[in-house]
Every structure is written in structure tokens, then in C-alpha cells.
């Protein structure tokens, strides 16, 4: 396998093919690879927040601010169900695009965006009904930091989806590949998985 590799004449054409692949650059492949690397790195921010939350929760005697009983779980549960379902919707949207069903793609894609927006609005309504703020002790800070940082990601996801939807209106834009759509979809799954962990940590483990 070592130094003798090209002394074999039969391997020469194969190598030339490989060289050609390198020459034309797999831009979509590079882009997807880089995006996955980025998401892995991004997940470490959330892991750090989760670790900090857990550490403080386990070591703080007066965890909840005075007068606060705990968080209401039912509305956030509905929110969670909507967000997690949207991951399936976006999967079918992506599949429709792969099968060149552009109209179906746009409809499902719009539905995903609507579900994401529902989640965000629900989050804001929940925030407005709470008796504690960002600066109310350590609990308020952590609650708003975690939900807010995740909400920011949801917002970015929706904006990216809007961008991809707009691009789908350009004729033949997705005819030769749609790595942007795939990445947006992957990002959405990422945001979803983070939320499931976050929901367990903040709402279920009270």
C-alpha cells in the first residue's frame, strides 16, 4: 500500500479519476462536512450551559426564587410536541424536494416554519406570564439564558428556512443540488434535540 502505489500501471487511471474529483471539488460535500463539524462544536456551548445548570441546581440550597412554586409544564409540553413534530415535517419536505415535488416541498416547508413560529410565540407568552425575571437570582438568570439561547437558535432556524424557501422560487435553483436545504434541515433537527434535553432539565426535573 505504501510507496509502490503508482508503480502499478493499472492503478494510474484510478488515481487520475481521484485527481479529477479533487480538481472539481465536492463543494456540497465540503459544505455539509463543515456544517456538521460546526454543529458538533455548537453543541458544546449547550453542553456547557447544561453542565453549569446542573452543577448550580445541585449545590444551591434556595434554588427557586422566593414566592415561585415552580414552572407550569402543560403549555410547554404542547410546545415541545409541536417543535418535535416539525422535525418530521421538515424531513418529508426534504424528501419531497429530492423527488422534485417542488410545490409539496414548499407547503411542508412553510408548515415547518409555522410550527417553529408557534413554538417561539408560545415561549414568549410563557415568559410574559412568569413571576421572575432575568435578574431574579440565579434561577431566573439560568432559566432565561437557557431558553433564550435556544430560542435564538429556533429564530435563526426559521430565518434560514425563509431564505431557503425564497431560493426555491428561483427557477431551477435546486435542480443541481440543495445542500443549503439539507443543512437547514439538519440544523432544525439539532435545535429539536437540544430542546428535548433542555425540556427534561428545566421542566421535568424540578
Amino acid at each position: 500500500m505504501d510507496s509502490s502505489i503508482t508503480s502499478e500501471p493499472s492503478i494510474q487511471p484510478v488515481l487520475a479519476d481521484v485527481a479529477h474529483d479533487h480538481e472539481t471539488h465536492d463543494h456540497a460535500g465540503n459544505s455539509m462536512f463543515g456544517f456538521i463539524v460546526f454543529l458538533l462544536s455548537e453543541s458544546v456551548i449547550f453542553l456547557s450551559f447544561f453542565a453549569g445548570y446542573t452543577m448550580i441546581k445541585l449545590t444551591t440550597p434556595d434554588w427557586l426564587p422566593p414566592g415561585v412554586e415552580g414552572l407550569e409544564v402543560s403549555a410547554p409540553t404542547i410546545n415541545t410536541i409541536v417543535l418535535v413534530s416539525s422535525s418530521f415535517v421538515i424531513y418529508f419536505a426534504e424528501r419531497a424536494l429530492k423527488q422534485n415535488k417542488l410545490v409539496q416541498f414548499r407547503l411542508l416547508w412553510l408548515l415547518t416554519m409555522a410550527m417553529g413560529t408557534y413554538f417561539l410565540v408560545g415561549q414568549v407568552i410563557e415568559w410574559r406570564g412568569l413571576q421572575f425575571g432575568l435578574t431574579t437570582g440565579i434561577y431566573g438568570g439560568l432559566f432565561y439564558l437557557l431558553t433564550g439561547f435556544h430560542g435564538l437558535h429556533v429564530l435563526i432556524g426559521i430565518l434560514l428556512q425563509g431564505l431557503m424557501l425564497g431560493r426555491s422560487l428561483i427557477p431551477n435553483n435546486y435542480a443541481n443540488g440543495h445542500v443549503g436545504v439539507d443543512e437547514t434541515s439538519l440544523f432544525w433537527h439539532f435545535v429539536d434535540v437540544i430542546w428535548i434535553v433542555l425540556f427534561c432539565l428545566i421542566y421535568l426535573w424540578q
Partner: peptide
């Protein structure tokens, strides 16, 4: 990639 996000 693995550690900088913690500082962030």
C-alpha cells in the same frame, strides 16, 4: 472545536 464553546 471541542473546548472553545465552553469559554463562549
Amino acid at each position: 472545536l471541542a473546548a472553545l464553546p465552553a469559554l463562549t
